[in-house]
Design a protein around this nucleic acid. Structure first.
Lengths: 307, 307
DNA sequence: CTGATCCATAACTCAAGCTTATTGATTGAG
DNA sequence: CTCAATCAATAAGCTTGAGTTATGGATCAG
C-alpha cells in the first residue's frame, strides 16, 4: 500500500484513542466528524489492520490499536524533541564544539570552559590538546572549531583574537647561583644547558620564547627538547639545565626548581583564540563571548601573578 | 508557529540531505524542483533555523541540519517498524498472550507452548498458574486470554474444548499393603487418610477426582488438604496417607510413594482449553491451532503411559 | 561575453482533505 | 411499542495547499 502515511494520521489516531468518540475527538482536533472517520479509515488501510472496533454505539481499541498507541505517542514526542534540538543547534544553544588548545594554556582554557558550559549547558565540548602547529592544523582541516594558541602569527585563513598576555620568566634548579631571588640577567644563564620545546611545535612561539636570551646576545642552543612544559620543569628540577617559560606554566613547580624574574624590559607571550575566517556560527560566537571576561587581562607586570 | 509539520517534510529533507541537489532530490521524489524548495523552506520555518545553506551554486547542510538528519532518518525507520508491528499484532503474529493454567497440567501446557512459540516467535506468552477456579476467574476478568483447566463445566460465558483425558490412579506409601503391584480396589483404601486438594479449588474437578472412592461406596473425607500435587505426593511418600490423582501428575513420584492402578471401569480426568465466548482474535485461534496436535490424545487405557 | 547550471519566485492547477447534509443503526425514555 | 436522541458512515460539494510550468537571477566555465 502507499507509503503516504502522514503525521496527521498519528495525531488523529491518538485523539480518537484517548476520546474513544469520533465526535469529541473531531471537536478536539477542530475538524468535523466525517473527516476524522475518513482519516482513521485511511490509516487502517495503510497499516492493514483494524485499529478501532466500532459498534454504532461505541468505539474501542483493538489489540493492534492498543499496541500502536504508545508507539505513536512516543514518535510524536520524539519528533517534537528532535525539532527542538535542531532549533537549539541552529541557534548555537546545543551541539558540539571541538576546541583545540596548547597544553600550556590549560589554565585559561579551563576558565573559559567553566563559563561557557555555564552559559551553554547543552553543548558538548570536545577537547584536543597539542602544539600550536597541531592546533592550527586541526582548525584548518575542520577537526576543531576553535583553537587556543600561543604566539601565533596572523594568517589569511585563520583569524586571531588576543585572550591574555604574560611575561616570560626563567626557571632554574634551586642550587643554581641565580636561584637566590631578585632579578637575574639573561646573560647569567648563557652557560647553562637550555631545556625547551622543539622549534617545530611552533616556530613563532619558539622565537618569542627564546627572545630574552637572544636579546642578551646569547646564541640559542636547545640542549634538551621536550614536548610539554611539565616534563621540562621536572628536568630543570633534576638539575639538567634551565628554561625560559611563560609565567603561567611556572605557577606549580616541582621541588628543586625555582622561578626567577628576568631583568630588563619584559618580553611577553600572548595567548590567542584562533578561528577560521568566515566561520560565524552562533556556537562560535557564544564561545568567544564566554571568553570575553578573561580577555585583555595583562599579566606582564612583574608584581602581578597569573592565575 | 504552526505545528503542521508532516512526514512529507522529513522525507523531502532526507532526500535533499543525501543528494545535496534540489533538482536531483526532486527527481528522486517524483516531484518538481520548486515544490521541493517550497517544502524545505516550510520545514525550516517550522524548525526555526536554516537546515541547508544554499549558494546559487551548491547546497550543504548546516550544523542544525546535520544534527537533524540522523534523527529524522531514525524517526521514519521507527515509524515503519511500528506500523509493521501493529500489523503483525493485528494479524496475531505478534503481541502478548496471557495463559492461565492449573499446575497439574504443566506437562501439556509446556508441550503446547513449545509448538506455539515455534509458530509465533514474536508473541510474548505470559504464564499464570493456579487452581481451576483461579484460572476461570482470570479468564472472566480478562487477566488471561486462554485457560487450561481440569474437569471444568461448560458455562455460558466460557467455552471449553477438550485437550486430553487421562485415568485416575491411586498413590500410596510404598509400605502400604496395596503397593505390591497389580490392580487395587478402591475399597482397599477406605481406612487410609486421604490427602487431596481443597474442594474450593475446583468443585467439579474435586468431585471427578474422588469419584473412584464414591463409586466404591466410601464416604469421602479429606484428612489433609494440600494446594499442589507435588506436595501431596511428598505427604504420601512420608506415609501420611493415600491419594487419588490424574495419571500425569504421578509420572515423577518421590521415593516412598507408589502409583497403583485402580480396578474397575476407569474414571477419567479431562483437561480443557477454556476461552471467553466470542473472543475470536487471531492470536487465540493461533494458540488453539498450535494445541491441535496434542488434542484428543487419550491416556485412559491402563497400558498407555501419559507423558 | 555567452551558455550552462542551479535555486528562488510567481502564477496557476488540481488532488485530497474538509465541510455540510443525510442515512442507518442502536439505545433509552415514555 | 413508539419516539427521540446518539453516533458513526456515506454522499456530494467546497477549499486549501501541494504540486506544476514558466521565468528570473546568480555563479561559473570557456
Amino acid at each position: 500500500m502507499d507509503q503516504r502515511i502522514e503525521l496527521r494520521h498519528l495525531r488523529y489516531f491518538l485523539a480518537l484513542a484517548e476520546e474513544l468518540h469520533f465526535g469529541h475527538a473531531a471537536q478536539r482536533l477542530h475538524i468535523a466528524q466525517p473527516a476524522l472517520s475518513q482519516q482513521i479509515r485511511q490509516l487502517e488501510k495503510i497499516v492493514g489492520v483494524e485499529l478501532f472496533r466500532r459498534t454504532s454505539r461505541s468505539v474501542h481499541l483493538t489489540e493492534a490499536g492498543a499496541a500502536f498507541g504508545p508507539r505513536a505517542r512516543n514518535l510524536l514526542d520524539r519528533l517534537a524533541a528532535d525539532l527542538d534540538e535542531a532549533g537549539r543547534v541552529g541557534r548555537g544553544e546545543a551541539g558540539r564544539l571541538d576546541v583545540a588548545f596548547i597544553t600550556s594554556a590549560t589554565a585559561i582554557v579551563s576558565e573559559i570552559l567553566r563559563e561557557f558550559s555555564r552559559r551553554r549547558p547543552d553543548v558538548q565540548v570536545k577537547l584536543h590538546d597539542g602544539f600550536t602547529t597541531d592546533v592550527l592544523a586541526a582548525l584548518k582541516r575542520g577537526t576543531a572549531d576553535v583553537g587556543i594558541v600561543r604566539d601565533a602569527e596572523e594568517r589569511d585563513d585563520i583569524g586571531l583574537s588576543l585572550l591574555t598576555s604574560e611575561r616570560f620568566v626563567a626557571v632554574v634548579p634551586s642550587e643554581h647561583p641565580a636561584a637566590g631571588g631578585g632579578l637575574v640577567e639573561a646573560r647569567a644563564l648563557a652557560e647553562d644547558p637550555l631545556i625547551l620545546f622543539p622549534r617545530s611545535a611552533g616556530t613563532h612561539a619558539f622565537d618569542m620564547n627564546t627572545q630574552p636570551l637572544r636579546n642578551a646576545g646569547i646564541d640559542v642552543q636547545v640542549a634538551q627538547e621536550c614536548s610539554n612544559w611539565h616534563t621540562i620543569m621536572m628536568f630543570v628540577a633534576a638539575g639538567l639545565g634551565v628554561s625560559i617559560a611563560p609565567y603561567s606554566v611556572t605557577t606549580l613547580l616541582p621541588a628543586g626548581a625555582r622561578r626567577v624574574e628576568l631583568d630588563g624590559p619584559p618580553t611577553v607571550s600572548r595567548i590567542f583564540m584562533a578561528t577560521r575566517r568566515g566561520d560565524d556560527r552562533p556556537l562560535l560566537q557564544a564561545f568567544m563571548a564566554a571568553s570575553e571576561p578573561m580577555t585583555g587581562r595583562d599579566n606582564c607586570d612583574r608584581t602581578t601573578t597569573a592565575r
